[in-house]
Amino acid sequence: MSRLATRFEALAKTGRKALIPFITAGDPKPDFTVPLMHAMVKAGVDVIELGVPFSDPMADGPVIQRASERALAHKMSLKRTLEIAMEFRKTDQETPVVLMGYLNPIEAMGYENFANAAQRADIDGVLTVDLPPEEGVECSALLKARGIDPIFLLAPNSTDERVKKMDAVGSGYIYYVSLKGVTGAGHLDATDVENKVQQIKTNTKLPIAIGFGVKDAETAKTIARFGDGVVIGSALISKVEENLDDVERASHEIIELLVSIRQALDS
């Protein structure tokens, strides 16, 4: 069984919700990321989504765009993101790591080269924002053959037909985008999320992680009830941005926020 499946199964048994932080690899500088990943695990996160910096992050709001820009200024890349994941894995064989990014860096590396490199880095899942299942048949097959889960998004306006499609081609979990918009946008409506996630669950048994617009412990707790986990990204990266002159402090504030969310989820 994959690390992701094992993790979600264990959580379900104890009735806990997955806490999934998203951070951009190499933001604000390359050596910040691995220690932060370990610290986040200590703070009680269950899965780490590692953002691959891209020059044109079309689905992201300004906070994650700027994180990409900071990382790229340090020559971060898909290759170096995989190196970070490999470094993390040396001392943590338990925590699933999911790469989240855009397709062009994978196209440039070549699908097969990428799948091999991801396997070497012991990556657990890959979420490619701009690769829908129809176009992703080849890439998903290469990943699955190496025991890596292809993870797909669903949106508030996704039809039942789309849900069934994601259920058929995806594995690991489904990332439910809780609002119409980009990452870090507006405020989300809990009732809308509840209704939609319930509807999705009639068509898939995959765990549902809910993200986009989760800002604090309170929203995390509210929406986690409807699914199997919450993803928090922009709110963490804001801590980096607010403390660019003091990365220790950035790390400290990220951990503080994650600890408060963990407590809220478990209370």
Partner: peptide
């Protein structure tokens, strides 16, 4: 069609 799922509908 290479777009995020949010745009697919």
């Amino acid at each position: 069609i290479f777009v995020a799922e949010t745009l697919m509908p």
